[in-house]
Amino acid sequence: MARLSFAARLHGGAAALLLAVGLYWGLLAVPADAFQGEVQRIMYLHVPSVSTAYLAILVTFCASILYLWKRDLRIDAVAHSSAEIGVVFLGITLATGAIWGKPTWGVWWTWDARLTVTAIVFTMYVGYLMVRAFAEEPQAGARYGAVLAVLGLPAIILNHFAVQWWRTLHQPSSLIRPGGPSVAPVILWPLVFNIVAMLVLYSYFLLERVRLERIRHRAAESRLKRGRRG
């Protein structure tokens, strides 16, 4: 029954393998930051999660624009799927950020600009999923969702610059900044590796989630055909 193609299995296996190597590299094979100590290792999880969430939001944004133009439900399936995975990674970002914040800053949470915008973006995409679940007619749900998803790009740009435009407890960006990353190579390499591993996992999730949408679509068509005949 659960007929998995060889390519999909290979894809999932590759994601698992990459994450396992990244886990070993980040947790054991590399020294922790001199100032923060061992808790800095949460970075190898927090930063890849937020990078993946940003990409997921960007994919939803692009697919939504394309949907509004082409009105093709297959494109909308990509937008909807990516948004759902984005919520998962945003949730992980918030959770690991809080767990990292407690031993370093001394608090699980504070309402500075970076954290506030991240919480707003997370709530926005939870809202997106609710709009999609609420809509009874697929085209209407896709349209409402797409209009919401257009806010995704300004939201992540705002979040990126939040730490520069306002005073925050969260430190400024370490990777994408003028003058290059402020991370020593021994810490930077496993970090980049873990980002890549998380993106491979995202692409696996996305393909499987789009596959689910396709099967549901075919089932709906089959039901429609049956209804017409009967």
Partner: peptide
């Protein structure tokens, strides 16, 4: 402990 908690939750 915090590292374990973060990786566990994720």
């Amino acid at each position: 402990g915090f590292v374990g908690l973060a990786y566990g939750v994720a």
